[in-house]
Design a protein around this nucleic acid. Structure first.
Lengths: 192, 192
DNA sequence: GCCCCTCAGTACGGCAGCGTATGGATACGG
DNA sequence: CCGTATCCATACGCTGCCGTACTGAGGGGC
């Protein structure tokens, strides 16, 4: 790839994306309440005068950050796994990938958003992401031969287990042997 | 000044417990950020002058509310289920109880607290509750004949599924046939 | 080079919430 | 019936943050 001088943040000037990224980072540790114009400006090394050149107000930043999030973690973020042809291997990859917490940042946002799940925009974003993942899992189970209604329930419980394991991984400090856990999860959720 | 409407508690004067209960309710929908002295005072129909007669500051209320929570949802809250002698029935009761969301308030607190999991006090409280439940599940699986290490992993995945199902139930509006879901969960997590 | 648009700094008003001070009201034991 | 502790109201200062207005600096297209 050709390196342009505007690729990374060595430029002293910020873009709207810099703000949404910072907002997501703030959400990851602190929830929506941590998304403040002046605090973010401080961490970015500027004053809020810059912010209002990119967004009309704080709400607009939040909606932009949330849209950015579910766009990257909905179907787009699942493309890598959806491309796996063999459903059995796809399922195993999905399980082990999350169990071993390959993406340490993304789930933090997901979990932090739980605290603000009453906000309709948050509800919408989380719902979209969950739906995309549930769809992929449901289709996978169908491809594995389960009847449709069973596939739905199975996918639901399996995805719930994945979410719950993230919960536990984030609240407890000790990492309880990811390999054994992945095996246990696989043994449970892979149809014999 | 007109007489302000006192809540269901017909006693005109409040106690410290009334404040902690209100704080937990606020946590349930809004996280720690929603625990404010003046907002709570408004919902309780008093002014904050009352609050500072019970607590030294806002932090003291939060720690008291968290302590109250994990005391009622740790081993104490599990006593009802721990009393079930037959491990198979105990496990089934645990699964169906949570899947059908018998306690609609308590889990909300749990989920909201995940949003504030960076607060060390929150982390401690959630960790305690999780540990108590994991212990009960692990022992149940052991009583069912699983070797210790397998019982640990099995309990972990099962509890994770429970948490995740709550997660989904709270973020999605539609309730997807609790009976069928309970059956699916039982089929997965009850050793044949 | 010139203009214009974007990004950033400064200053101000306003609001919500925390904590304090103080005094009044009510219950309860003596 | 009185005194004391507890609960509650009011008023105030303070801080942090949002949003607006205005100004300034610099870079790119013409």
């Amino acid at each position: 790839m050709a390196y342009s001088p505007r690729m990374v943040n060595d430029s002293p000037r910020l873009s709207a994306q810099d703000w949404t990224r910072a907002a997501l980072k703030a959400i990851a540790d602190g929830g929506l309440a941590a998304v403040g114009v002046e605090p973010l400006a401080r961490t970015l090394g500027v004053t809020k005068g810059s912010f209002y050149a990119h967004f009309r107000n704080r709400d607009e930043l939040i909606t932009a950050a949330l849209a950015d999030w579910w766009r990257n973690h909905g179907e787009a973020g699942l493309a890598e796994y959806a491309a796996i042809a063999d459903p059995g291997q796809r399922l195993r990859e999905l399980l082990t990938a999350v169990v071993r917490s390959v993406q340490p940042l993304a789930p933090s946002v997901h979990l932090s958003l739980l605290g603000d799940r009453n906000d309709p925009r948050v509800k919408e974003a989380v719902s979209r992401v969950n739906q995309a993942r549930l769809n992929l899992l449901t289709n996978t189970y169908r491809e594995l031969g389960l009847p449709p209604d069973q596939a739905v329930n199975r996918a639901r419980v399996a995805y719930a287990a994945i979410l719950g394991l993230l919960h536990l991984a984030q609240t407890e400090a000790d990492s309880p042997n990811p390999d054994a856990l992945a095996d246990a999860a696989a043994a449970i959720f892979l149809p014999s």
